[in-house]
Design a binder for these strands. Sequence first.
DNA 1: CAAGTTAATCGTACGTTGTACGAGTCATCT
DNA 2: AGATGACTCGTACAACGTACGATTAACTTG
Lengths: 234, 234
Amino acid sequence: MAAKRSGGQSKRSERNVSPPSGPEPRSEQPLSLERIVATAVELLDAEGLDGLKMRRLADRLGAGAMSLYWHVGNKEEVFDLALDAVLAYRGPAPLGEAGDWRGDVVHMLADWRAGMLRHPWSAALLPRRALGPNILFRLELLSSTLSRAGVADADLNVAIWSLWNYVIGATTTRASFELSDEDRAAAQQRLTGLSQHYPTIERSRLLLDNDWEGAFNKGLDFLLDGLVPKQYNS
Amino acid sequence: MAAKRSGGQSKRSERNVSPPSGPEPRSEQPLSLERIVATAVELLDAEGLDGLKMRRLADRLGAGAMSLYWHVGNKEEVFDLALDAVLAYRGPAPLGEAGDWRGDVVHMLADWRAGMLRHPWSAALLPRRALGPNILFRLELLSSTLSRAGVADADLNVAIWSLWNYVIGATTTRASFELSDEDRAAAQQRLTGLSQHYPTIERSRLLLDNDWEGAFNKGLDFLLDGLVPKQYNS
DNA sequence: CAAGTTAATCGTACGTTGTACGAGTCATCT
DNA sequence: AGATGACTCGTACAACGTACGATTAACTTG
């Protein structure tokens, strides 16, 4: 009734394969879900969450605004797809038996964090639309790796969610600082102005500390230490 | 130029103190920042993020839409204020010397989590507008408590951000499940349908596990164990 | 080849939203 | 009395998402 194109991904017609004549590639490619999503990510990177308007997206694609709606149901779906596109993971072989499991986990989580920080808008999207296929894939990877590492089934969910939450939180916090320099400056100013109210974080310069990555890794190490029994020696 | 009312909070005029006559309290109270924020929170609880429209908010207040703009600069500010309002903390005495510091920390963080889950829309707001006064207060509290607990200044920021991130992530993840039953059902369905692709999380029923609170506490314990030197015995 | 079917594009238009602008009301101060 | 400032609100507008239907191009079926 409502959805014209829902589940499937590829359905592109091959009509521009230059049948008899016309080797010129026509600067205007045909619309496609892939192109829409890629352009949406570009636009989000360039203009932020509020900068994504259907008309503007269509402009960038050299198409009319309403043409988009044959490929996506609505704007929300564009957000969904853009978020998931940014979260794809090409990591080390998922089934590597000779496990440096800890390295695998850290790598995946660090990559996750890095990917999201490359696209700061993604953090703001996460709370609304978790559980795209790429997120699920990463959860699956995390799960199987930890399982292979010897985490008991009973503790598996705790371990997964703890790591997961940690990364999400780190990314969210960090990205919110990234968003606008004005905001950060304003916050600093407010903080400095009210340093009488917040003496301790003022003293430790909490908000000015720039070693986010170091803090991230240290905390992650502590978590992993706690979550996995110390019997890792293979 | 642009802002009519910015920094200060109270400025209410006392003109309805019933000077000579008129003891009836007039069902329509005067507008005030406090009332606006409180009503915004109500509205958000009832209708969600997208349900907050300026006109609707004004309706609930028995006022015209434009009247709101004397008290707030724009809609974004309403979001800011609503978020911060929800994050107020009335915890145990901040300067309790006889430190059950660990209990204090856990209590504050658990309260934080509980508060946000009571208002699921707050998680979606966090990435955009961190650092309201109530957030800063909690950071300050966390900071001073850990400092008193013996965490070295050099490790303080790592400790704070680790705990912080963990809580934010847990809340965000959890709230996204809370948001709509449809979404969750859809995710479950997709997961079950594609269980071939996600065998491990299917087996552990990761997404169906309901003991969020238990997982939260366990992971928090691990983090605290790692972050604070085991020399806590008073 | 003709006629129909399907895939895809897009112009127009509508309803909803945030909010700029300026007029209006009322209490207080000089 | 007049002026000032705090506060309210009706009107109007621009920007946005998108419903609707017309349009075109390619392929299918006869």
